[in-house]
């Protein structure tokens, strides 16, 4: 193992949620840069993936993030009417309104998925949103889907043992 997995997941104070953040290049990504230039400190749990527009955020990306172990997914785009490409954020919003229902039906708490409009000048909003989301996801605890998947699959191994046992019996 390259880096002790437990250690790398734990940071300095126990379990730390990991949040994948899809940020639009023109607003929220720029705002996150502004937060940096202004040294606005915030929780270190978000991992930003830059996209040109919130309209590029395919719901599959969000599901894939959860499936691969994200504890939360944050999508940041320009305020309504402000999309650099005019309407991308409306499309994002339309998908989101139904998609969040789907994600909830799949048993994922709604606090784990969030859509925020953050303009290029709102460096402090980046802090507020990330801190708030981290606090909420922390309260929910880990989602750990990869771990859940392997736990679910344990019911399969039982039969494996059974088959193995039987064959041994036959051979004996």
């Amino acid at each position: 193992m390259l880096l002790d997995e437990n250690k790398s997941q734990s940071g300095s104070q126990g379990w730390q949620p990991k949040i994948i953040a899809f940020f639009c290049n023109w607003c929220t990504y720029t705002a996150a840069d502004l937060a940096g230039v202004s040294r606005i400190k915030h929780a270190p749990n978000a991992r930003v993936i830059r996209v040109m527009c919130s309209g590029r955020v395919d719901p599959q990306f969000i599901l894939d993030s959860f499936a691969k172990g994200a504890d939360g997914v944050l999508v940041g785009g320009c305020h309504p009417g402000d999309c650099h490409y005019q309407e991308g954020n409306y499309k994002c919003l339309r998908r989101f309104q139904l998609f969040k229902r789907v994600v909830e039906s799949f048993g994922i708490n709604k606090d784990r998925l969030r859509l925020e409009w953050i303009s290029a000048s709102e460096g402090d909003k980046v802090r507020l949103v990330i801190n708030d989301m981290v606090a909420k996801v922390k309260a929910l605890g880990p989602l750990s889907l990869p771990k859940k998947f392997s736990e679910w699959d344990k019911e399969m191994n039982i039969i494996e043992e059974k088959i193995a046992g039987k064959e041994e019996a036959v051979h004996a």
Binding site: D58, P59, Q60, D64, P80, K91, L93, F99, V102
Partner: peptide
């Protein structure tokens, strides 16, 4: 990778509303 997410994405993108309420 996920048929449901993809058709959802396609169909909802073409909804006419612009506010949460309309949508």
């Amino acid at each position: 990778k996920d048929q449901g997410a993809k058709i959802l994405s396609s169909i909802t993108s073409n909804i006419s509303g612009k506010t949460e309420k309309e949508i």
